[in-house]
Design a protein around this nucleic acid. Sequence first.
DNA 1: TATGAATGAGAATTCATTCAT
DNA 2: GATGAATGAATTCTCATTCAT
Lengths: 211, 211, 211, 211
Amino acid sequence: MPRTRARDAESKEARRAALLSAASGLFETQSFAQVTMGEISAAAGLAKGTAYLYFTTKEALFLALLAQELEAWFDVLAEAPLRPSKDAPDQVAALFAETLSERPTLVRLLGLLHLTIEQNVSAELVLPFKLRLAERMGEVGARIEAVLPQLSPGDGVRLFLRAHALVVGLGQMSQVKPDLDVLLAKPELCHLKVQWAPELRACLAAMLRGW
Amino acid sequence: MPRTRARDAESKEARRAALLSAASGLFETQSFAQVTMGEISAAAGLAKGTAYLYFTTKEALFLALLAQELEAWFDVLAEAPLRPSKDAPDQVAALFAETLSERPTLVRLLGLLHLTIEQNVSAELVLPFKLRLAERMGEVGARIEAVLPQLSPGDGVRLFLRAHALVVGLGQMSQVKPDLDVLLAKPELCHLKVQWAPELRACLAAMLRGW
Amino acid sequence: MPRTRARDAESKEARRAALLSAASGLFETQSFAQVTMGEISAAAGLAKGTAYLYFTTKEALFLALLAQELEAWFDVLAEAPLRPSKDAPDQVAALFAETLSERPTLVRLLGLLHLTIEQNVSAELVLPFKLRLAERMGEVGARIEAVLPQLSPGDGVRLFLRAHALVVGLGQMSQVKPDLDVLLAKPELCHLKVQWAPELRACLAAMLRGW
Amino acid sequence: MPRTRARDAESKEARRAALLSAASGLFETQSFAQVTMGEISAAAGLAKGTAYLYFTTKEALFLALLAQELEAWFDVLAEAPLRPSKDAPDQVAALFAETLSERPTLVRLLGLLHLTIEQNVSAELVLPFKLRLAERMGEVGARIEAVLPQLSPGDGVRLFLRAHALVVGLGQMSQVKPDLDVLLAKPELCHLKVQWAPELRACLAAMLRGW
DNA sequence: TATGAATGAGAATTCATTCAT
DNA sequence: GATGAATGAATTCTCATTCAT
């Protein structure tokens, strides 16, 4: 165990990253409630209390993780090829659906943001997160506005918010208990089944076409 | 204490209704986790154990409450005037947004359905709920299909599912902590504010127009 | 369901027997705590409250069951061939071990008698049970005394009490959790394994030889 | 509240011992079920949760208490004077009966071992307990084998197991409810009375004589 | 900075028993 | 005699967070 003390900013940042990485790994196979601060610390090679030197609460830690994941996602969106065309709505919708499908952790964290994370983190901590989020949504949103003539300025950000809502809502609907899933196979109920990615894409595409 | 016993089916139904009503009242001002079975029973004038004669679990009780609320909502939708016209998409969207705005309990229960309720209730109890839900969505969905030429058969049900996702997602986004709400007033962040009803309406209208 | 009322002593006795039989059947596969009065009543085709017309408590019901089982066991012992001989101790020990092996319900009930049953039944109810028990132990005990010269008058009853203690103690020791049973296979621990019937027989035989 | 923290192994052992001592004290006048973890912690001057830093479950705590009591008992047996003689069986029996009479807590814990403790403790925790038990039974058992020619190698351990069964069985039989105890004074029933220590001694002595 | 022992709140559920009808 | 709705007591264990060293 690193009895060594992170003195310089660099090694402190390394500790922080180790904690985030550990949390991310554990969150892949367990729910937010199941992942404990003790496990995260241990997986990062630190003592329980040490985690609290870097993150004020468990929720703050996951907020940082979400910020990291979002940053990476926006990076991808910022470089994605976008060209004005008559099927631009579908292009954009597919871009969202595909890039998010590859990021299940991000999707699950987005489902935690409002109900779990924001409710247990001080406003001072959320503020920079929100500011950065607004910045990047504005930046990438502008690129999207550029290829979709029906979007007015500011609608790019709004698209992100609507997509967020769909991601969260559809995410919940597709997490079905196995024994219930069996029942949903009945012909009367099979219409209630929701496939996350195709549904997200279809919703976004329709929404953009009709914007 | 009411040593009186609900003997006939009628008075038993009254007890059941009293419990649902008590739960509904408590749920208005508290979260699902905060409302306890003890409180519900007491509010209904019954002993703690009595609630379990009518509902196998806390989740089963709230599932029944949701079923009741949904039934009432579908009743309203089934009688709402719907006429084919070029702004039918907006009419339908407005109908959803308005009727749901008046039913905050229903909206919050919908947010509980997949993550909390269905995960803790036996499949046998969910099955009739789902069947009835499918039935009514089919019934009202058909009415909606009739006024929206772009909807194919079955799209009515799909519309309900997509609306459900939006309701849940937007519902979470609009539950903002007061201190955070203050910060969202800043000019850089005000775009992130989500007003539930107008947003739901706009999303649904756009989606239907572009269906 | 028998809405018919047991008026005469005969049909009342039939009800009583039905309850005992139901309890016995359920107790074969479940523990005392797991068997509920509701289950017993239902299995006997009666309502829950009706069981309390025949037995004042759950423990009283099981005391009656034990009395029944004991009576049958004593009947067998009373007719078992017993002949004085130099290996009479082993004969008697074998008789106990074999007849009890065939009566697992009796063995389990004996383990319940002191800790569970007698602690929750009024003394007035235990008295006739004890009197009858003393009577039969005296009766069969005398037969045993007759073939074992080392036994003085009264030692037959004492033998029963000691056998009871062994039955209970060995009974507990042979109920080992499956995962623990695996560990007991180790060479260092295999000596700790106890086989109920052979051990009971060996203990009783040695005890009688050395009486 | 003792915000003081047991830092070194020594003070941690002291905390452990304090918990065991507290549990032992409470168990003297209450049953296992009546003694709560909260009471134990409080009696040890600790918070409820702290007990779980030292023992994974309530049963694990009582298993440790039993181990401690057994260790002390075996220490006494290991140093008890044992000499071969024609009344060695009675000597050994008396040794068991007397030393156990002085240890009512040990006797009651032995009655808990199979039914309550082992059923609720992980096999990993029971294993070292069993191994140590086998070791000490072997050690003291060998001493006993040395003074009793009728015992073959391994019979010492077997003696302990049989004694355990008797201890448990007789222990239950001598825990009679006061009101029942009055009835047992009747001349027809006084034969059913069991005095724990003399009876244990007599049983063991006879068993050893007839081994 | 790092540690890790100490803290303490928090709620669903079962089932023997009763008693009004 | 039969019913069955109503009663209500009772307790473990987890884990985020703190803070003395």
